[in-house]
């Protein structure tokens, strides 16, 4: 198991954003994390990646208890993530952004080697032609790919993708899904992927985990989850999503 999450909960003042989430993630899988808005998906990522310290429970990464560890230590240990709301280093070039990922990620490279990795990764996410542009000047789709490139440049074992498809147009979605699939096959990286675009997440994931109001309401293969009553119920508040789930 690359990641074990046991009974993780997170409270913000009076709000229990996450409660008692438990799952194991075997190496090499893609786990889809779905749930309505505000279900606690991003909060779960934050608890896993050290951005928040969970209020309860335990997170084990590659056999090591990492509960409440610092985010920069998690990066060193081989966990990388993207942000739902992109956070480019605006005044740095695209290439420099990715070099940061390579320099301070798992392999802890020096600048020249990091530069080579950056070029390779930028090629991989098809941003090579934007290398020297300032990151702040990219459009949303490009910024999402930049997030992806920075995370990949860290050469992670585990990659946490937070809605990388949100805000993309259909052709960009196709490109991004392709990239995600290739990450697994070519780079042997385990992935957890938060996604609202159902057909994509159904298509890519080996397994799905469903959160609702901070609780884990279902887990299983895409087919199992799609036919799970609780899941359908959870999404009934949002008929459009329910429909997409059913037809996805």
């Amino acid at each position: 198991m690359i990641l074990q999450v046991e009974g993780v909960g997170k409270r913000f003042g009076g709000l229990q954003a996450l409660s008692d989430v438990t799952f194991d993630l075997p190496e090499g899988q893609i786990l889809g994390l779905i749930g309505p808005n505000g279900a606690g998906k991003t909060t779960l990522f934050n608890c896993i990646s050290g951005v928040y310290e969970p209020t309860d429970g335990r997170v084990t990464f590659r056999g090591e208890d990492v509960t409440g560890s610092k985010p920069y230590l998690m990066a060193r240990r081989g966990m990388a993530r993207t942000h739902q709301i992109v956070r480019p280093l605006n005044e740095l070039s695209v290439r420099e952004n990715v070099i940061v990922g390579a320099c301070f990620g798992r392999e802890n490279h020096r600048l020249p080697a990091a530069g080579d990795i950056a070029d390779e990764v930028l090629e991989f996410v098809r941003l090579a032609d934007r290398s020297d542009q300032l990151a702040g000047s990219l459009n949303v789709g490009q910024k999402k790919r930049l997030e992806m490139a920075r995370a990949l440049a860290a050469r992670p074992y585990l990659l946490l993708l937070d809605e990388v498809l949100a805000g993309l147009n259909p052709s960009e979605i196709v490109m991004m899904v392709e990239i995600v699939k290739r990450i697994r096959t070519e780079r042997n990286v385990t992935i957890i992927m938060i996604e609202h675009v159902m057909h994509a997440v159904m298509n890519v994931s080996d397994r799905l985990l469903v959160l609702d109001y901070g609780r884990q309401i279902a887990e299983g293969t895409p087919e199992e989850v799609a036919n799970n009553e609780k899941v359908i119920e959870a999404y009934l508040g949002d008929p459009k999503l329910a429909e997409r789930l059913m037809t996805g």
Binding site: P71, Y72, H83, P88, L89, E91, V100, F104, R106
Partner: peptide, 14 residues
């Protein structure tokens, strides 16, 4: 420079 641009993002990147 990464800290200057976005300290939280920089920490996440290691």
């Amino acid at each position: 420079l990464a800290i200057r641009e976005d300290e939280d993002a920089a920490e996440v990147m290691g």
